[in-house]
């Protein structure tokens, strides 16, 4: 068998599944990113933060090939996204999963059928029975109740829609998971559970997670590193304690502002008493 076919069944073993170098994106005259560079480590949860309109979602769209790039190079799992034709990327496309902000579920299909769509698209030779079984266990893995599999998206609550979207993102057993504001619009309990789920899945499935968020609690709870977008580029990447030391005014305001301090305080008291975690597992059961 020739070389690419072997690659197809091999997981990515390099250190950086996502490498962005000198990225420039623009809408007409309006430049969103200029000379932006970012390296994501394998097996980490990287949180991407930035003010509204700073181009977090645009960066994600550029990485998954939905956004045309003016200059620079993006490598995902060792394949260049920017230099190849969109159709050449099909091999990489099935190795990542994306959860869009609103869930973006297909409204005319049930949750189970939503999960089956990408599998049918990429692996038509899988028998129907196995296909249904896969859809069912993915739904459970995503933390939904058993009967949710036959429900339509309109019958689900916001939090359940996110989980169903996650189940679809995980349908192809990706190595990379992109989450666009997964906890936005969820109540604090639902958001905390979703964070926990993300962490658990990341550890069980060995995922690399690229997570866009405004939620400081999410950053403190589950992110290994945080990348900050400002001034059209990534101004800092590091763990939260490292970033808190930063002198940059935006980062300082972000982490040392009233909400940043509240989230940090919550994290400290939760780890001290360990009650926060206990209560979460309780209500989940």
């Amino acid at each position: 068998m020739d070389q690419p076919a072997q690659d197809e069944h091999e997981r990515f073993h390099g250190d950086h599944p996502i490498v962005v170098e000198g990225l420039k994106t623009a809408f007409g005259e309006h430049v969103v990113h200029e000379n932006l560079s970012l390296k994501v480590n394998r097996g980490e949860i990287i949180g991407v933060v930035g003010g509204s309109g700073s181009g977090k979602s645009v960066l994600m769209r550029a990485i998954i090939g939905l956004q045309t790039v003016a200059a620079g190079n993006i490598d995902v799992l060792g394949h260049s996204i920017t230099s190849a034709e969109p159709d050449d990327n099909l091999g990489v496309r099935c190795r990542w999963g994306v959860l869009f902000q609103g869930g973006a579920l297909f409204s005319t299909l049930t949750v189970g059928e939503n999960v089956e769509v990408p599998i049918k698209q990429f692996y038509p030779d899988i028998e129907d029975e196995l296909l249904h079984e896969i859809a069912r266990y993915k739904v459970i893995l995503s933390g939904l109740p058993e009967d949710a599999v036959s429900k339509y998206p309109s019958e689900l609550s916001g939090g359940m829609k996110k989980r169903a979207g996650l189940a679809r993102a995980l349908a192809l057993d990706p190595e990379l998971l992109f989450l666009d504001e997964p906890t936005a619009g969820l109540d604090p309990i639902g958001a905390a559970k979703f964070d926990q789920l993300t962490k658990e899945l990341q550890q069980t499935l060995g995922l690399t997670v690229f997570l866009i968020t405004h939620d400081l609690d999410t950053l403190y709870e589950i992110c290994d590193r945080v990348a900050v977008i400002a001034d059209k580029r990534i101004i800092a990447v590091g763990t939260i304690p490292e970033l808190i030391e930063s002198k940059h005014p935006w980062i300082d305001e972000y982490f040392n502002g009233p909400r940043g301090r509240a989230a940090a305080h919550g994290k400290v008291s939760a780890t001290n008493s360990a009650t926060g975690v206990d209560i979460q597992t309780d209500s989940e059961a």
């Binding site: 189970g112 266990y137 058993e146 599999v149």
Partner: peptide, 21 residues
């Protein structure tokens, strides 16, 4: 890794129908 995945899917057994009844 195999052990981890097998135990994860083992607890994720689901017999519900994909289509609503």
């Amino acid at each position: 890794r195999a052990q981890r995945l097998v135990s994860a899917v083992h607890t994720a057994r689901n017999d519900a129908d994909i289509r609503p009844p």
